[in-house]
Design a protein around this nucleic acid. Sequence first.
DNA 1: CCTTATCGACAACCTAGTTGTCTAAAGGAG
DNA 2: CTCCTTTAGACAACTAGGTTGTCGATAAGG
Lengths: 157, 157
Amino acid sequence: MGADLALLLLGGFRALADAATAELARRGHVDFRPSHDFAMRAIAAGASNASDLARRLSVSKQAAAKTIALLQERGYVARADDPHDARRKLLEVTPLGRSVLREGEAIFDELRSRWERQIGAGELTRLETSLTTLLGPSALRPDESGWITHELDEPSS
Amino acid sequence: MGADLALLLLGGFRALADAATAELARRGHVDFRPSHDFAMRAIAAGASNASDLARRLSVSKQAAAKTIALLQERGYVARADDPHDARRKLLEVTPLGRSVLREGEAIFDELRSRWERQIGAGELTRLETSLTTLLGPSALRPDESGWITHELDEPSS
DNA sequence: CCTTATCGACAACCTAGTTGTCTAAAGGAG
DNA sequence: CTCCTTTAGACAACTAGGTTGTCGATAAGG
């Protein structure tokens, strides 16, 4: 049935995202969600102020500002005055921010390896190839292609 | 990279869910989201009151009550007094509710066929088999296995 | 009969968004 | 150099979809 396909895809994402969130929490990054990761990556990739970040994430400036405030509060990004434009506040990823990004990548890689061991490297590559064909390569660039997720709930975990 | 896998799965779900939501809207069911569908199916499957629905969806009674209020307001479910228990309000799926469920199924089936034409029936079955292996069969029963999604955003669409 | 459990409603709050309004600063046209 | 427009970011007020805690009414069991 068609709906089952959607459920499988969602279930797959949630399994990975929940496991990653839980593992990050275990390592001290409590409540660091996928959307925070997206935002951090956009900042690391060059979004140097709130308005720019908003554009890259395709959300309102206000939503971006709230995310920045949260990331700043937790020490993942820092804001400084822009010497060339008094309106702007320059965004910067802190060492803590860089470490959470690195750890996030490592965790996802580890989760992928786990799946590889379960169904085989070939089968997993095949799955990725199929999905890439279906979605187009733009699916991998959320911060440039104009979609962003709402947060997915933490289950009982 | 591991994170890409997660993005592909999320992208796949979103592609299906957004297309289905848009198509339902086109057919007159405006703002009918996946979570409404989950709730309706749980009711159709026997959740006959708010507390029961809450348990099946693994959310609080209050969250279930809000969803019911919305579905009732739009005419998808009806509530009547329970003759055997004055505390309960019996939930019932209206003809309109049944029709939206039928249409939802048909739309998802059609979307799946479209994917089948793109990558081939064998490849799609393979993808579903892999995901089922990875997630276990419980992934297909969201209303019984204890997870529910937050809503996913409508993108620019 | 009385205690305990359950149903559904209420108020208050959280998170992650939205739009609209506003000030201050930047920058281009004349 | 001065206007006019654009931009950055902050504020308030709102929405959706959740949460917890409280409460009154009803049901059910010792």
